[in-house]
Write a protein that binds this DNA or RNA. Structure first.
Lengths: 253, 253
DNA sequence: CCTAGGAGTTGACGCAGCGGAAACCGCAAG
DNA sequence: CTTGCGGTTTCCGCTGCGTCAACTCCTAGG
Protein backbone atom coordinates (compact mmCIF):
# COMPACT_ATOMS: atom_id res chain seq x y z
CA UNK A 1 0.00 0.00 0.00
CA UNK A 2 1.47 3.33 -1.07
CA UNK A 3 0.20 6.85 -0.47
CA UNK A 4 0.92 9.96 -2.47
CA UNK A 5 2.05 13.11 -0.74
CA UNK A 6 -1.46 14.57 -0.86
CA UNK A 7 -2.87 11.40 0.72
CA UNK A 8 -0.42 11.58 3.58
CA UNK A 9 -1.15 15.26 3.99
CA UNK A 10 -4.86 14.55 4.29
CA UNK A 11 -4.35 11.63 6.64
CA UNK A 12 -1.97 13.44 8.94
CA UNK A 13 -3.21 16.99 8.77
CA UNK A 14 0.08 18.58 7.78
CA UNK A 15 0.58 20.30 4.45
CA UNK A 16 2.36 18.70 1.54
CA UNK A 17 4.87 21.50 1.78
CA UNK A 18 5.76 20.34 5.26
CA UNK A 19 6.22 16.78 4.06
CA UNK A 20 8.55 17.99 1.33
CA UNK A 21 10.42 19.98 3.95
CA UNK A 22 10.79 16.90 6.12
CA UNK A 23 12.13 15.04 3.13
CA UNK A 24 14.48 17.89 2.34
CA UNK A 25 16.04 17.87 5.79
CA UNK A 26 16.14 14.08 5.89
CA UNK A 27 13.64 13.78 8.72
CA UNK A 28 11.10 11.76 6.76
CA UNK A 29 12.20 10.59 3.31
CA UNK A 30 9.47 8.81 1.33
CA UNK A 31 9.69 5.05 0.90
CA UNK A 32 10.36 5.43 -2.81
CA UNK A 33 10.09 7.93 -5.63
CA UNK A 34 8.18 7.22 -8.84
CA UNK A 35 9.66 7.60 -12.28
CA UNK A 36 7.68 10.85 -12.51
CA UNK A 37 9.47 12.18 -9.47
CA UNK A 38 6.47 11.82 -7.18
CA UNK A 39 6.97 10.85 -3.52
CA UNK A 40 5.30 7.67 -2.27
CA UNK A 41 4.98 6.75 1.40
CA UNK A 42 4.44 3.39 3.09
CA UNK A 43 2.94 2.48 6.46
CA UNK A 44 6.27 2.65 8.24
CA UNK A 45 6.62 6.25 7.11
CA UNK A 46 3.19 7.08 8.47
CA UNK A 47 4.19 5.64 11.84
CA UNK A 48 7.35 7.68 11.81
CA UNK A 49 5.35 10.76 10.92
CA UNK A 50 3.06 10.13 13.88
CA UNK A 51 6.05 10.06 16.20
CA UNK A 52 7.33 13.23 14.64
CA UNK A 53 4.04 15.05 15.10
CA UNK A 54 3.75 13.84 18.69
CA UNK A 55 7.11 15.26 19.62
CA UNK A 56 6.52 18.37 17.57
CA UNK A 57 3.41 19.10 19.65
CA UNK A 58 5.57 18.88 22.74
CA UNK A 59 7.62 21.69 21.27
CA UNK A 60 10.77 19.81 20.35
CA UNK A 61 12.80 21.01 17.38
CA UNK A 62 13.00 18.96 14.19
CA UNK A 63 16.71 18.43 14.73
CA UNK A 64 16.06 16.92 18.15
CA UNK A 65 13.21 14.80 16.89
CA UNK A 66 15.48 13.38 14.22
CA UNK A 67 18.13 12.60 16.83
CA UNK A 68 15.59 10.75 18.95
CA UNK A 69 14.01 8.81 16.09
CA UNK A 70 17.37 7.71 14.78
CA UNK A 71 17.95 6.65 18.41
CA UNK A 72 21.08 8.68 18.76
CA UNK A 73 19.82 10.01 22.09
CA UNK A 74 17.39 8.83 24.72
CA UNK A 75 13.87 10.13 24.38
CA UNK A 76 13.29 10.65 28.09
CA UNK A 77 16.59 12.47 28.51
CA UNK A 78 15.68 14.71 25.60
CA UNK A 79 12.27 15.43 27.10
CA UNK A 80 13.78 16.23 30.47
CA UNK A 81 16.16 18.69 28.92
CA UNK A 82 13.33 20.16 26.89
CA UNK A 83 11.19 20.44 30.00
CA UNK A 84 13.94 22.28 31.77
CA UNK A 85 14.26 24.74 28.92
CA UNK A 86 10.52 25.26 28.90
CA UNK A 87 10.53 26.16 32.58
CA UNK A 88 13.44 28.51 32.17
CA UNK A 89 11.74 30.27 29.30
CA UNK A 90 8.45 30.37 31.15
CA UNK A 91 10.11 31.92 34.16
CA UNK A 92 11.78 34.45 31.93
CA UNK A 93 8.44 35.44 30.47
CA UNK A 94 6.86 35.66 33.90
CA UNK A 95 9.58 38.00 35.09
CA UNK A 96 9.26 40.00 31.88
CA UNK A 97 5.49 40.26 32.30
CA UNK A 98 5.91 41.54 35.84
CA UNK A 99 8.43 44.12 34.69
CA UNK A 100 6.17 45.29 31.90
CA UNK A 101 3.28 45.43 34.33
CA UNK A 102 5.29 47.60 36.70
CA UNK A 103 6.39 49.82 33.83
CA UNK A 104 2.80 50.33 32.76
CA UNK A 105 1.82 51.17 36.32
CA UNK A 106 4.60 53.73 36.58
CA UNK A 107 3.72 55.36 33.29
CA UNK A 108 0.08 55.51 34.31
CA UNK A 109 0.94 56.95 37.67
CA UNK A 110 2.97 59.74 36.13
CA UNK A 111 0.30 60.49 33.58
CA UNK A 112 -2.93 60.75 35.50
CA UNK A 113 -2.39 60.86 39.20
CA UNK A 114 -5.74 62.56 39.51
CA UNK A 115 -8.09 59.83 38.45
CA UNK A 116 -6.16 56.77 39.44
CA UNK A 117 -7.92 54.08 41.38
CA UNK A 118 -7.92 54.69 45.06
CA UNK A 119 -7.33 51.81 47.41
CA UNK A 120 -8.61 52.01 50.95
CA UNK A 121 -7.37 49.76 53.70
CA UNK A 122 -10.23 49.17 56.09
CA UNK A 123 -9.19 47.08 59.04
CA UNK A 124 -12.13 44.75 58.86
CA UNK A 125 -14.78 45.14 56.24
CA UNK A 126 -17.08 42.45 57.46
CA UNK A 127 -17.69 43.49 61.01
CA UNK A 128 -21.25 42.69 61.66
CA UNK A 129 -21.69 41.25 58.20
CA UNK A 130 -25.15 39.76 58.19
CA UNK A 131 -24.60 36.19 57.09
CA UNK A 132 -28.09 35.10 58.07
CA UNK A 133 -29.56 36.91 55.07
CA UNK A 134 -28.00 34.28 52.81
CA UNK A 135 -28.81 31.24 54.82
CA UNK A 136 -32.31 30.69 53.47
CA UNK A 137 -31.26 30.99 49.84
CA UNK A 138 -28.18 28.88 50.24
CA UNK A 139 -30.02 26.15 52.13
CA UNK A 140 -32.52 25.98 49.32
CA UNK A 141 -30.18 26.03 46.33
CA UNK A 142 -27.32 23.86 47.60
CA UNK A 143 -28.58 21.88 50.59
CA UNK A 144 -25.61 19.51 50.69
CA UNK A 145 -22.99 22.20 50.55
CA UNK A 146 -24.89 24.28 53.04
CA UNK A 147 -24.82 21.44 55.52
CA UNK A 148 -21.07 20.96 55.08
CA UNK A 149 -20.43 24.63 55.48
CA UNK A 150 -22.52 24.82 58.62
CA UNK A 151 -20.67 21.90 60.14
CA UNK A 152 -17.39 23.65 59.53
CA UNK A 153 -18.40 27.05 60.84
CA UNK A 154 -19.76 25.44 63.95
CA UNK A 155 -16.27 24.27 64.82
CA UNK A 156 -14.87 27.79 64.62
CA UNK A 157 -14.43 30.06 67.57
CA UNK A 158 -15.23 33.73 67.48
CA UNK A 159 -11.50 34.42 67.20
CA UNK A 160 -11.26 32.16 64.18
CA UNK A 161 -14.05 34.00 62.47
CA UNK A 162 -12.51 37.36 63.08
CA UNK A 163 -9.18 36.13 61.76
CA UNK A 164 -10.78 34.83 58.61
CA UNK A 165 -12.57 38.10 58.09
CA UNK A 166 -9.28 39.94 58.33
CA UNK A 167 -7.69 37.58 55.87
CA UNK A 168 -10.58 38.14 53.46
CA UNK A 169 -10.11 41.89 53.71
CA UNK A 170 -6.39 41.54 53.13
CA UNK A 171 -7.06 39.47 50.02
CA UNK A 172 -9.34 42.18 48.70
CA UNK A 173 -6.68 44.82 49.21
CA UNK A 174 -4.13 42.73 47.36
CA UNK A 175 -6.53 42.27 44.47
CA UNK A 176 -7.18 46.00 44.43
CA UNK A 177 -3.46 46.60 44.06
CA UNK A 178 -3.34 44.34 41.04
CA UNK A 179 -6.32 46.16 39.58
CA UNK A 180 -4.76 49.58 40.18
CA UNK A 181 -1.55 48.42 38.50
CA UNK A 182 -3.53 47.54 35.40
CA UNK A 183 -2.65 43.88 35.79
CA UNK A 184 -4.94 41.80 33.61
CA UNK A 185 -6.98 39.19 35.45
CA UNK A 186 -5.24 36.47 33.50
CA UNK A 187 -1.88 37.37 35.03
CA UNK A 188 -0.35 34.41 36.89
CA UNK A 189 0.16 36.55 39.96
CA UNK A 190 -3.54 37.37 40.00
CA UNK A 191 -4.39 33.72 39.49
CA UNK A 192 -2.24 32.81 42.46
CA UNK A 193 -4.16 35.32 44.52
CA UNK A 194 -7.47 33.92 43.31
CA UNK A 195 -6.16 30.49 44.17
CA UNK A 196 -5.76 31.63 47.77
CA UNK A 197 -9.34 32.88 47.67
CA UNK A 198 -10.54 29.59 46.24
CA UNK A 199 -8.76 27.61 48.94
CA UNK A 200 -10.39 29.84 51.48
CA UNK A 201 -13.80 29.11 50.03
CA UNK A 202 -12.97 25.42 50.01
CA UNK A 203 -12.86 25.47 53.78
CA UNK A 204 -16.63 25.86 53.59
CA UNK A 205 -17.47 24.02 50.39
CA UNK A 206 -15.86 23.03 47.12
CA UNK A 207 -17.41 24.85 44.19
CA UNK A 208 -16.91 23.56 40.66
CA UNK A 209 -16.11 25.93 37.80
CA UNK A 210 -19.70 27.07 37.24
CA UNK A 211 -20.44 27.51 40.92
CA UNK A 212 -17.26 29.50 41.48
CA UNK A 213 -18.10 31.80 38.59
CA UNK A 214 -21.58 32.20 40.02
CA UNK A 215 -20.08 33.23 43.33
CA UNK A 216 -18.04 35.87 41.53
CA UNK A 217 -21.17 37.22 39.90
CA UNK A 218 -22.82 37.36 43.30
CA UNK A 219 -20.05 39.68 44.48
CA UNK A 220 -21.07 42.06 41.70
CA UNK A 221 -24.84 41.71 41.95
CA UNK A 222 -25.44 41.50 45.65
CA UNK A 223 -25.58 44.96 47.22
CA UNK A 224 -24.00 43.93 50.50
CA UNK A 225 -21.07 42.14 48.92
CA UNK A 226 -20.74 44.87 46.34
CA UNK A 227 -20.59 47.67 48.83
CA UNK A 228 -17.89 45.79 50.73
CA UNK A 229 -15.79 45.60 47.55
CA UNK A 230 -16.54 49.20 46.65
CA UNK A 231 -15.28 50.32 50.02
CA UNK A 232 -11.85 48.99 49.06
CA UNK A 233 -11.74 50.26 45.49
CA UNK A 234 -14.16 51.23 42.74
CA UNK A 235 -14.68 48.43 40.24
CA UNK A 236 -13.05 45.81 42.43
CA UNK A 237 -16.12 43.57 42.47
CA UNK A 238 -16.07 43.26 38.69
CA UNK A 239 -12.32 42.71 38.67
CA UNK A 240 -12.64 39.99 41.27
CA UNK A 241 -15.48 38.36 39.34
CA UNK A 242 -13.49 38.38 36.10
CA UNK A 243 -10.43 36.97 37.81
CA UNK A 244 -12.51 34.20 39.35
CA UNK A 245 -13.98 33.38 35.94
CA UNK A 246 -10.53 33.11 34.37
CA UNK A 247 -9.36 30.99 37.28
CA UNK A 248 -12.39 28.74 37.01
CA UNK A 249 -11.78 28.17 33.31
CA UNK A 250 -8.08 27.56 33.78
CA UNK A 251 -7.99 25.43 36.92
CA UNK A 252 -11.43 24.07 37.66
CA UNK A 253 -12.50 22.66 34.30
CA UNK B 1 30.08 66.39 20.42
CA UNK B 2 30.11 63.44 18.06
CA UNK B 3 30.79 59.78 18.79
CA UNK B 4 31.98 57.10 16.43
CA UNK B 5 30.18 53.80 16.20
CA UNK B 6 32.73 52.11 18.47
CA UNK B 7 32.29 54.85 21.08
CA UNK B 8 28.53 54.40 21.09
CA UNK B 9 28.96 50.65 21.27
CA UNK B 10 31.19 50.98 24.32
CA UNK B 11 28.94 53.51 25.98
CA UNK B 12 25.75 51.56 25.44
CA UNK B 13 26.98 48.01 25.63
CA UNK B 14 25.59 46.89 22.29
CA UNK B 15 27.82 45.76 19.44
CA UNK B 16 28.67 47.96 16.51
CA UNK B 17 27.05 45.34 14.35
CA UNK B 18 23.78 46.00 16.13
CA UNK B 19 24.10 49.73 15.62
CA UNK B 20 24.65 49.20 11.91
CA UNK B 21 21.61 46.97 11.91
CA UNK B 22 19.54 49.68 13.58
CA UNK B 23 20.71 52.11 10.95
CA UNK B 24 19.92 49.64 8.21
CA UNK B 25 16.31 49.21 9.33
CA UNK B 26 15.91 52.92 9.97
CA UNK B 27 15.47 52.57 13.71
CA UNK B 28 18.52 54.65 14.65
CA UNK B 29 20.25 56.44 11.80
CA UNK B 30 23.42 58.30 12.82
CA UNK B 31 23.34 62.09 13.01
CA UNK B 32 25.65 62.35 10.03
CA UNK B 33 28.09 60.36 7.96
CA UNK B 34 31.68 61.44 7.39
CA UNK B 35 33.30 61.67 3.99
CA UNK B 36 35.01 58.38 4.79
CA UNK B 37 31.64 56.70 5.21
CA UNK B 38 31.92 56.50 8.99
CA UNK B 39 28.80 56.91 11.14
CA UNK B 40 28.78 59.68 13.72
CA UNK B 41 26.22 59.95 16.50
CA UNK B 42 25.09 62.95 18.59
CA UNK B 43 23.56 63.17 22.05
CA UNK B 44 20.02 62.98 20.72
CA UNK B 45 20.89 59.65 19.11
CA UNK B 46 22.21 58.33 22.40
CA UNK B 47 18.98 59.27 24.10
CA UNK B 48 17.00 57.54 21.40
CA UNK B 49 19.22 54.49 21.78
CA UNK B 50 18.51 54.43 25.49
CA UNK B 51 14.78 54.39 24.82
CA UNK B 52 15.30 51.61 22.32
CA UNK B 53 17.29 49.49 24.74
CA UNK B 54 14.76 50.07 27.50
CA UNK B 55 11.92 48.78 25.40
CA UNK B 56 14.03 46.03 23.95
CA UNK B 57 14.64 44.75 27.48
CA UNK B 58 10.91 44.61 27.95
CA UNK B 59 10.84 42.27 24.99
CA UNK B 60 9.23 44.54 22.40
CA UNK B 61 10.10 44.03 18.75
CA UNK B 62 12.19 46.57 16.87
CA UNK B 63 9.27 47.32 14.59
CA UNK B 64 7.07 48.17 17.56
CA UNK B 65 9.79 50.22 19.20
CA UNK B 66 10.12 52.25 16.03
CA UNK B 67 6.37 52.80 15.94
CA UNK B 68 6.38 54.05 19.53
CA UNK B 69 9.43 56.30 19.13
CA UNK B 70 8.04 57.87 16.00
CA UNK B 71 4.91 58.34 18.15
CA UNK B 72 2.66 56.58 15.74
CA UNK B 73 1.15 54.61 18.61
CA UNK B 74 0.75 55.13 22.34
CA UNK B 75 3.46 53.60 24.49
CA UNK B 76 1.14 52.41 27.23
CA UNK B 77 -1.25 50.81 24.75
CA UNK B 78 1.67 49.05 23.13
CA UNK B 79 2.92 47.81 26.48
CA UNK B 80 -0.52 46.55 27.43
CA UNK B 81 -0.78 44.59 24.23
CA UNK B 82 2.72 43.30 24.72
CA UNK B 83 1.92 42.28 28.27
CA UNK B 84 -1.11 40.38 27.08
CA UNK B 85 0.98 38.49 24.52
CA UNK B 86 3.57 37.69 27.17
CA UNK B 87 0.94 36.14 29.40
CA UNK B 88 -0.55 34.16 26.56
CA UNK B 89 2.87 32.82 25.62
CA UNK B 90 3.72 32.12 29.22
CA UNK B 91 0.52 30.18 29.70
CA UNK B 92 1.23 28.24 26.55
CA UNK B 93 4.65 27.27 27.86
CA UNK B 94 3.20 26.31 31.23
CA UNK B 95 0.68 24.01 29.59
CA UNK B 96 3.39 22.62 27.36
CA UNK B 97 5.65 21.97 30.34
CA UNK B 98 2.87 20.12 32.13
CA UNK B 99 2.22 18.01 29.04
CA UNK B 100 5.90 17.19 28.67
CA UNK B 101 6.05 16.36 32.34
CA UNK B 102 3.13 13.97 32.01
CA UNK B 103 4.67 12.41 28.93
CA UNK B 104 7.91 11.80 30.78
CA UNK B 105 6.01 10.24 33.65
CA UNK B 106 4.15 7.92 31.29
CA UNK B 107 7.32 6.87 29.51
CA UNK B 108 9.01 6.24 32.82
CA UNK B 109 6.04 4.25 34.06
CA UNK B 110 6.08 2.02 31.01
CA UNK B 111 9.83 1.56 31.22
CA UNK B 112 10.54 0.65 34.77
CA UNK B 113 7.40 -0.11 36.66
CA UNK B 114 9.49 -2.07 39.07
CA UNK B 115 11.58 0.60 40.69
CA UNK B 116 9.28 3.58 40.34
CA UNK B 117 8.56 5.65 43.40
CA UNK B 118 5.72 4.33 45.43
CA UNK B 119 3.22 6.73 46.89
CA UNK B 120 1.19 5.69 49.90
CA UNK B 121 -1.97 7.44 50.91
CA UNK B 122 -2.17 7.28 54.67
CA UNK B 123 -5.37 8.79 55.99
CA UNK B 124 -3.67 10.81 58.66
CA UNK B 125 0.05 10.68 59.14
CA UNK B 126 0.19 12.83 62.20
CA UNK B 127 -2.14 11.03 64.52
CA UNK B 128 -0.57 11.32 67.88
CA UNK B 129 2.29 13.39 66.51
CA UNK B 130 4.24 14.48 69.51
CA UNK B 131 4.40 18.22 69.22
CA UNK B 132 5.64 18.72 72.75
CA UNK B 133 9.07 17.42 71.79
CA UNK B 134 9.66 20.59 69.82
CA UNK B 135 8.23 23.06 72.24
CA UNK B 136 11.34 23.51 74.35
CA UNK B 137 13.64 24.06 71.41
CA UNK B 138 11.25 26.35 69.59
CA UNK B 139 10.58 28.45 72.67
CA UNK B 140 14.29 28.93 73.07
CA UNK B 141 15.25 29.72 69.51
CA UNK B 142 12.30 31.86 68.40
CA UNK B 143 10.49 33.07 71.50
CA UNK B 144 8.39 35.65 69.69
CA UNK B 145 7.18 33.28 67.02
CA UNK B 146 6.58 30.59 69.55
CA UNK B 147 4.27 32.88 71.46
CA UNK B 148 2.32 33.81 68.35
CA UNK B 149 1.97 30.21 67.34
CA UNK B 150 0.77 29.20 70.78
CA UNK B 151 -1.83 31.94 70.77
CA UNK B 152 -3.15 30.67 67.46
CA UNK B 153 -3.26 27.01 68.33
CA UNK B 154 -5.05 27.79 71.53
CA UNK B 155 -7.95 29.13 69.52
CA UNK B 156 -8.30 25.87 67.58
CA UNK B 157 -10.66 23.11 68.50
CA UNK B 158 -9.71 19.46 68.31
CA UNK B 159 -11.68 19.21 65.09
CA UNK B 160 -9.70 22.06 63.59
CA UNK B 161 -6.46 20.36 64.44
CA UNK B 162 -7.53 17.11 62.91
CA UNK B 163 -8.63 18.88 59.73
CA UNK B 164 -5.29 20.64 59.46
CA UNK B 165 -3.45 17.37 59.92
CA UNK B 166 -5.44 15.85 57.10
CA UNK B 167 -4.69 18.81 54.89
CA UNK B 168 -1.01 18.47 55.66
CA UNK B 169 -1.10 14.82 54.69
CA UNK B 170 -2.94 15.64 51.47
CA UNK B 171 -0.27 18.20 50.61
CA UNK B 172 2.43 15.60 51.10
CA UNK B 173 0.66 13.19 48.80
CA UNK B 174 0.37 15.86 46.11
CA UNK B 175 4.07 16.65 46.42
CA UNK B 176 4.86 12.95 46.17
CA UNK B 177 2.94 12.82 42.90
CA UNK B 178 5.05 15.63 41.51
CA UNK B 179 8.18 13.86 42.63
CA UNK B 180 7.10 10.57 41.08
CA UNK B 181 6.33 12.36 37.82
CA UNK B 182 9.90 13.64 37.74
CA UNK B 183 8.71 17.23 37.99
CA UNK B 184 11.62 19.48 38.95
CA UNK B 185 11.15 21.43 42.13
CA UNK B 186 11.35 24.66 40.16
CA UNK B 187 8.19 23.79 38.22
CA UNK B 188 5.50 26.47 38.71
CA UNK B 189 2.98 23.81 39.66
CA UNK B 190 5.28 22.64 42.43
CA UNK B 191 5.83 26.21 43.55
CA UNK B 192 2.08 26.71 43.76
CA UNK B 193 1.88 23.65 45.95
CA UNK B 194 4.68 24.94 48.15
CA UNK B 195 2.87 28.24 48.31
CA UNK B 196 -0.09 26.44 49.86
CA UNK B 197 2.28 24.88 52.35
CA UNK B 198 3.81 28.24 53.15
CA UNK B 199 0.40 29.81 53.70
CA UNK B 200 -0.40 26.96 56.01
CA UNK B 201 2.73 27.63 58.02
CA UNK B 202 1.87 31.32 58.08
CA UNK B 203 -1.15 30.53 60.18
CA UNK B 204 1.30 29.82 62.96
CA UNK B 205 4.16 32.16 62.15
CA UNK B 206 5.66 33.95 59.18
CA UNK B 207 9.10 32.60 58.33
CA UNK B 208 11.44 34.60 56.13
CA UNK B 209 13.47 32.97 53.37
CA UNK B 210 16.20 31.61 55.63
CA UNK B 211 13.78 30.37 58.27
CA UNK B 212 11.61 28.63 55.69
CA UNK B 213 14.64 26.89 54.22
CA UNK B 214 15.66 25.85 57.72
CA UNK B 215 12.25 24.35 58.25
CA UNK B 216 12.69 22.33 55.06
CA UNK B 217 16.02 21.04 56.33
CA UNK B 218 14.35 20.05 59.57
CA UNK B 219 11.99 17.82 57.62
CA UNK B 220 15.04 15.99 56.32
CA UNK B 221 17.07 15.89 59.51
CA UNK B 222 14.50 15.32 62.18
CA UNK B 223 13.72 11.59 62.55
CA UNK B 224 10.07 12.09 63.38
CA UNK B 225 9.36 14.46 60.47
CA UNK B 226 11.47 12.34 58.20
CA UNK B 227 9.68 9.13 58.99
CA UNK B 228 6.37 10.84 58.31
CA UNK B 229 7.60 11.86 54.87
CA UNK B 230 9.13 8.48 54.20
CA UNK B 231 5.82 6.84 54.94
CA UNK B 232 4.36 8.66 51.96
CA UNK B 233 7.23 8.15 49.54
CA UNK B 234 10.94 7.52 49.64
CA UNK B 235 12.96 10.69 49.16
CA UNK B 236 9.98 12.96 49.67
CA UNK B 237 11.58 14.84 52.55
CA UNK B 238 14.50 15.91 50.37
CA UNK B 239 12.19 16.82 47.52
CA UNK B 240 10.06 18.92 49.85
CA UNK B 241 13.13 20.59 51.27
CA UNK B 242 14.49 21.44 47.82
CA UNK B 243 11.13 22.77 46.69
CA UNK B 244 10.90 24.95 49.77
CA UNK B 245 14.39 26.29 49.11
CA UNK B 246 13.52 27.22 45.53
CA UNK B 247 10.29 28.80 46.75
CA UNK B 248 12.13 30.76 49.41
CA UNK B 249 14.61 32.12 46.89
CA UNK B 250 11.94 32.99 44.37
CA UNK B 251 9.20 34.44 46.55
CA UNK B 252 10.56 35.27 49.97
CA UNK B 253 13.70 37.22 49.17
C1' DC C 1 -5.59 16.40 -31.64
C1' DC C 2 -5.74 20.20 -28.67
C1' DT C 3 -6.68 22.00 -24.24
C1' DA C 4 -7.97 22.83 -19.55
C1' DG C 5 -7.21 21.43 -15.02
C1' DG C 6 -5.40 19.01 -11.18
C1' DA C 7 -1.60 17.03 -8.76
C1' DG C 8 2.92 16.86 -8.53
C1' DT C 9 7.86 18.73 -8.90
C1' DT C 10 12.08 21.97 -7.79
C1' DG C 11 13.72 26.55 -6.59
C1' DA C 12 13.75 30.74 -4.07
C1' DC C 13 12.21 34.53 -0.97
C1' DG C 14 10.60 35.90 3.56
C1' DC C 15 10.35 36.21 8.58
C1' DA C 16 13.45 38.52 13.55
C1' DG C 17 17.47 40.01 15.06
C1' DC C 18 21.32 40.02 14.77
C1' DG C 19 26.40 36.98 14.81
C1' DG C 20 30.15 36.11 12.21
C1' DA C 21 33.06 35.83 8.25
C1' DA C 22 35.07 37.74 4.04
C1' DA C 23 37.09 41.35 1.54
C1' DC C 24 38.38 45.97 1.38
C1' DC C 25 39.83 51.04 2.80
C1' DG C 26 42.33 54.78 5.39
C1' DC C 27 45.43 56.21 8.72
C1' DA C 28 49.20 56.18 12.09
C1' DA C 29 53.20 54.05 14.45
C1' DG C 30 57.37 51.18 14.36
C1' DC D 1 56.98 48.96 4.07
C1' DT D 2 54.47 46.43 7.14
C1' DT D 3 51.42 45.88 10.72
C1' DG D 4 47.44 46.85 13.16
C1' DC D 5 43.27 49.18 14.39
C1' DG D 6 38.87 50.82 13.32
C1' DG D 7 35.89 51.43 10.12
C1' DT D 8 33.04 49.94 5.81
C1' DT D 9 29.72 46.81 2.85
C1' DT D 10 27.85 42.38 1.65
C1' DC D 11 26.27 37.94 2.41
C1' DC D 12 25.24 33.48 4.77
C1' DG D 13 23.03 31.27 8.81
C1' DC D 14 19.50 30.19 12.14
C1' DT D 15 13.74 27.87 12.56
C1' DG D 16 9.96 25.89 10.26
C1' DC D 17 7.73 26.20 7.22
C1' DG D 18 4.03 29.69 4.00
C1' DT D 19 3.81 31.44 -0.31
C1' DC D 20 4.60 32.42 -4.91
C1' DA D 21 6.71 31.08 -9.55
C1' DA D 22 7.66 28.27 -13.24
C1' DC D 23 7.44 23.61 -14.99
C1' DT D 24 6.05 18.68 -15.85
C1' DC D 25 2.90 14.87 -16.29
C1' DC D 26 -1.44 12.73 -16.76
C1' DT D 27 -6.32 12.48 -17.69
C1' DA D 28 -10.87 13.74 -19.32
C1' DG D 29 -13.60 16.39 -22.54
C1' DG D 30 -14.72 18.82 -26.86
Amino acid sequence: MAWSIADVARLSGVTSRTLRHYDEIGLLPPAWIGSNGHRYYEEADLLRLQQILLMRELGLGLREIAAVLDSQVDQVAMLREHHRRLLVEQNRLATLARTVSRTIAELEKGKDEGDMTKINRPENLFEGFDASRYEAEARERWPHEYEQSRQFTDTLTAQDQERMQRETTAQMVRMAEFMAAGTPVSDPAVLTEVDAHYRGICQFWTPNAAAYKGLGQTYVDDPQFRSAYDKVAAGLAEYQRDAMAVYADARLS
